[in-house]
Design a protein around this nucleic acid. Structure first.
Length: 237
DNA sequence: TACCAGGTGACTG
DNA sequence: CAGTCACATGGT
């Protein structure tokens, strides 16, 4: 009996993972109709926070008619923090939103599109220079607001990859990202859907305590509950 | 009750 | 460079 051994995934593995998730969950429509302002604010507010909490904060911003970074740039920081309170870390996130607004106002003449129209690598580098924007949030913005093909790696993506036995050599963001970008065409629509599917799978099935009996990947996963070298918890060594 | 949720920056050894 | 901690609310 041969078990699936932890390996570096090939093009075929990476593509097949996408196909299975898409066949199981269908299109996810992540951030489809929202404009760049809502996407960027959502990307910052969702840091280490449940999306339902973010929706409460977004509703309060909308209700207060906060719809542009120009408005955020000029508003009272404590008031902004109070509006986004339900998303957690509200003082830090208010600062992050404000620092983003300062960049748009000072370096891009208040024109958000001028920032988002930059070449992908330039855009990503500038975003990473903003206090509070790390690699995942930068890629969220590049992919879902600017529609440029930067693959997003989050906690969910890492959990699925680790359990499949595909954990890369390093544990850095870049190590996980290269697994996908080296095996896929540079296609923003594909990256968009792929990341959304990974998150759907991780939040509903490949949870901290995995529901392997409902999993569409059982036959290729080394952490499945009947895998002899792992217990029933689905945790990777 | 603890744990979990679409992270990041500051600090330490 | 790898660990550890603060940041904070709301759902299960």
């Amino acid at each position: 009996m041969t078990l699936p051994l932890p390996t570096t995934p090939t093009h075929s593995h990476v593509r097949s993972l996408y196909d299975r998730l898409y066949a199981t969950y269908g299109p996810q429509h992540w951030w489809p109709g929202d404009g760049p302002f809502d996407v960027i604010v959502g990307a910052i507010l969702t840091q280490n926070t449940n999306w339902t909490n973010v929706e409460k904060a977004l509703a309060k911003l909308r209700n207060a008619n906060i719809c542009s970074f120009k408005t955020i740039h000029g508003m009272d920081r404590n008031y902004l923090a109070d509006l986004i309170r339900p998303s957690g870390y509200f003082n830090q996130k208010a600062r992050k939103l404000h620092e983003f607004a300062v960049l748009v106002e000072n370096d891009f003449n208040g024109d958000l599109d001028q920032l988002l129209d930059l070449p992908m690598d330039d855009l990503r580098t500038i975003l990473l220079g903003i206090w509070g924007i790390g690699e995942e949030t930068a890629d969220d913005i590049v992919l879902y607001a600017a529609h440029k093909p930067s693959f997003v790696i989050d906690k969910y993506t890492r959990r699925i990859i680790d359990r499949l036995g595909w954990r890369p050599r390093g544990v850095r963001y870049r190590d996980y990202q290269l697994m996908f970008t080296e095996q896929l065409p540079s296609d923003a629509a594909l990256f968009n859907e792929y990341h959304a599917l990974l998150d759907e799978h991780a939040s509903t099935v490949c949870r901290p305590t995995p529901r392997c009996n409902q999993c569409c990947l059982q036959d290729i996963c080394v952490a499945r509950t009947d895998a002899p070298s792992h217990g029933g918890k689905g945790q990777c060594p």
